[in-house]
Amino acid sequence: MGAVRVKVPQIRTSILLKITSNEKTNLFNSPSGNYYMQNAPMVLFHPDGNFIISAKITAELREVYDVASLVIYQDNNLWAKLCFGNSIKKETTVVTRGFSDDCNSIKITDDFVYFSIAKKGEEFSFHCSTDNVNWELVRHFRLECNDSSLMLGFAVHCSKGEKFSAVFSDINYSKNVLENMRTYK
């Protein structure tokens, strides 16, 4: 397990990325301080100082805590993930500043979703879409990170089941910034 680091220029690609996670994997620092697990397989790269990334995530969510996500990751104590996950309500995002701040948001009923992460300075926004055209804000937040050590990418984990896979497709990356971080414009 662990992160795979790759160099990625500005891209618009039809490449498919499939990540499979074994059992008992996670990317979570419990708010209680009693549980830290960071063994989720990730594919990460160093992004530009400002960026927009979007991807279609396809997965069959079976077990509670089957999760496929877009991730911004600096270190074990500073990261955030936009999750297509089978949480108790099948709707979650997590921001971690030492301890994880788990937030249920939009329920997805299909086996796929489009996600986007945008960064402008220390401002981040997470958006989702069911059609890759109409985007809805999931979370807007500040995360003070070091651009030289910040990484961006894809992760999956499987806390309860035996194995979990997700496919990331329609991947678009740009060093452009959103004019309005809340409305995806």
Rank of each mutant, 00 (worst) to 15 (best):
G2E: 06
V4N: 11
R5T: 15
T13L: 00
I15F: 07
L16Q: 12
L16M: 10
K18E: 07
K24N: 12
K24D: 10
N26F: 05
F28D: 14
G33F: 01
N34W: 09
Y35R: 12
N39C: 03
M42L: 12
V43M: 07
L44W: 08
F45L: 09
H46V: 12
H46I: 13
P47H: 06
F51D: 01
I53S: 01
S54T: 10
S54W: 04
A55H: 05
L61A: 04
L61I: 10
R62G: 14
R62I: 14
V64W: 07
L70P: 13
I72H: 02
D75Y: 03
L78G: 08
W79L: 07
L82F: 11
C83V: 14
R97S: 13
G98Y: 01
F99Q: 13
D101V: 08
D102C: 14
D102A: 15
N104C: 14
I106A: 13
I106E: 14
I108H: 13
T109P: 13
I117E: 06
E122V: 11
C128P: 08
N132Q: 08
N132D: 08
N134T: 09
N134H: 11
W135N: 03
W135E: 01
R139H: 09
F141R: 00
E144F: 12
S148H: 07
M151R: 13
L152C: 12
G153H: 05
G153A: 06
F154A: 02
A155D: 04
A155L: 10
A155P: 12
S159T: 15
S159K: 15
K163T: 09
F164W: 03
S165V: 02
N172R: 09
N172K: 09
K175C: 12
V177R: 03
E179A: 04
M181P: 09
Y184S: 01
Y184N: 07
K185S: 06
